[in-house]
Nucleic acid binder design. Sequence first.
DNA 1: TGACAAAAAATGAATGTTCATTCTTTTTTA
DNA 2: TAAAAAAGAATGAACATTCATTTTTTGTCA
Lengths: 194, 194
Amino acid sequence: MAKLQKSIDKRNALVKATIELVNNNGFHATPMSKIAKMANVSPATIYLYFENKQDLVNQTYIEVKAEYTKYAFETYDESMSVEAGFELIWKRIADFKLKECENAMFLAQCDNTPMIDELSRQQGIKHLQPLLDLWTRGKEEGIIKPLSEYLLYAYAINPLSFLMITQKRGAFQLDKTHLEEAYQSAWSSIKVCK
Amino acid sequence: MAKLQKSIDKRNALVKATIELVNNNGFHATPMSKIAKMANVSPATIYLYFENKQDLVNQTYIEVKAEYTKYAFETYDESMSVEAGFELIWKRIADFKLKECENAMFLAQCDNTPMIDELSRQQGIKHLQPLLDLWTRGKEEGIIKPLSEYLLYAYAINPLSFLMITQKRGAFQLDKTHLEEAYQSAWSSIKVCK
DNA sequence: TGACAAAAAATGAATGTTCATTCTTTTTTA
DNA sequence: TAAAAAAGAATGAACATTCATTTTTTGTCA
């Protein structure tokens, strides 16, 4: 197993370097040579693990996205009430975006630019299904507004990305209090007002 | 004035080409030669109007941002009630994002990547002041939740960018009905619940 | 166990291309 | 006709990818 172990370490180092460099400079301003240097590897070695630069970024995206959704739904279970389930998932997502800031920033950049193949993007979206199902249930129970998934996502989840980017720029600090306020805003935007 | 007129046309053509190409390919995948070709100009001519590529993009950003905020606040006046003022501004912004889709996409891309100088970004933010003032007034009157401006922006305005990008990708069509629903979500996320 | 050859992995240097920017010449304007 | 504007071609740097070698690993047999 020694060989395989070693390979995985290098691959991980490459993925990690890609995330860090793309976060700070963007896709096209990140040369393969720098990725190689940061991963302590020769540029040529990258091509043993990835087809080319596009493939490296696509694979990185898919991996990080999978990590993200795994974390988001890890403690969720479908027997929960809609409101409790939503709060749980929302707070896990918020948690991820604050703790795994680098990873989350990378996803945000991928989601907002033409950096990723459409195919890889589609793959990344699939994992959100449990949240979409929760919303469907909430609509049936009359707890959640009867809105399109895109609208629900835009108001309930997407603002977290904006807050994370703003925080990264240093303009603003997202602490415990703000987080609870943000949650309340998210919930009020999608719940049915009694 | 003939000379100046001609110059302004060329400058505008360059700015327009920049927006279109950067929208579709991103900053670094947009060569000066293509911008020149799309504007029917020699590459060398760009340097008569702009210092370099970074300057071209910075100036384009600042111009589009100014256009955007001008449109947003054109019909607003400070004597309006908080709720009416917010609805008006929100709908103007939504309108801009749908009608001037190219311009709005360009701003979204600039706001989400390290493509623009920090200085130019700061310049762009200033113009939002009337909205921030409206929110301050709303908080004083107990109509708007006592949240940080960043939180208010994240829930009241930013979701429109997400919806615009999603629409551009073709996954979803933002029609009149959706727009009204989106407005209601925005307003419920920031208003004080009675 | 240890030595060694075949295979795999890794490397640094080369290759060819793309691109921002500049230079020299031509065209347009006044 | 002098000055300004524009052009196309040239320059040099940066980069993704490949190539020819070197290093490391693996499996085999004494």
